[in-house]
Design a protein around this nucleic acid. Structure first.
Lengths: 137, 137
DNA sequence: TATATTATCGTAATGATTACGATTTGTAAA
DNA sequence: TTTACAAATCGTAATCATTACGATAATATA
């Protein structure tokens, strides 16, 4: 997803396309892995842009709700990345650089049969390690 | 795993079997789902036992390291449960009561082939929802 | 361009977790 | 069974990510 597609989604849902929101979208569109609120703040400070925590977190959650960002949680902090696909998928996540690789395998079909009386609401399948680039360094 | 087995593990590794450590083990051995540090503190207060945060978290991490407790992370807090099995396994986790059901399916064999040049260090596969008991309430 | 609504700002508050110096406890050797 | 000492605990303060708030500013649309 790129910045313009994301802005289109915002407008369709009645949200305003503010400068701040575009700044945040610009950041995530140029990264290709999971990034934290702190990463985003540091990026904005380098651009000489102050930003409020309120604005950061409000928009990260909003973007997640409307499907612009995907999210995960690692070591006590939430991480976000631009949504790369409309298909259901999972990720390999590099422990060093946060970059991801899409995994199309989903074990839920097999698992559903084992949980007949359970109401399944969500699931998480993630693989962690070192990507090829980070193994060399 | 029960309290005595856990204490045996502690002693084997050279850790002392203190009253506090037994209190904590007693709590987790009588629960059958994921519980938070806060849950543990509340339990101890009901027993009229004060306890320091230092002691709580130091021991939770220790127990996780030596394989007495399993851990996961949900909504910004770490959760712990008594390790139920020495076999590699995953869990269904009830969103209401935290109780778990062991899942023996592991999709990693299939996935490893898709990640030939990636160094896999860890993975997480969890299913969330409502257990049969919580669906009725 | 005026207006109403939504968004942002700066900062304070919260909640989970970690850290610290002083004190206590468990263990094993004397 | 006492002694000695390392390890563990306590009470509390500090940290870190996140949430909340009242005042101000920016956006969309009429």
């Amino acid at each position: 997803m790129n910045v313009n597609e994301a802005i289109k989604i915002l407008k369709e849902k009645g949200y305003k396309a503010t400068g701040r929101r575009k700044d945040i979208l610009t950041y995530f569109s140029q990264e290709d892995g999971y990034r934290s609120a702190k990463d985003l703040i540091q990026y904005l400070e380098k651009q000489n842009e102050g930003i409020s925590f309120d604005t950061i977190y409000r928009n990260l959650h909003l973007y997640n709700e409307v499907g612009i960002l995907e999210t995960t949680e690692l070591n006590g902090e939430k991480l976000f990345r631009m949504n790369c696909s409309n298909e259901h998928h999972h990720h390999f996540i590099c422990n060093l650089c946060g970059r991801t690789k899409e995994i199309d395998v989903c074990p839920m079909d097999e698992v559903k049969q084992m949980l007949a009386n359970y109401m399944i609401e969500d699931h998480k399948f993630e693989i962690y390690g070192l990507c090829p680039a980070c193994q060399e360094a």
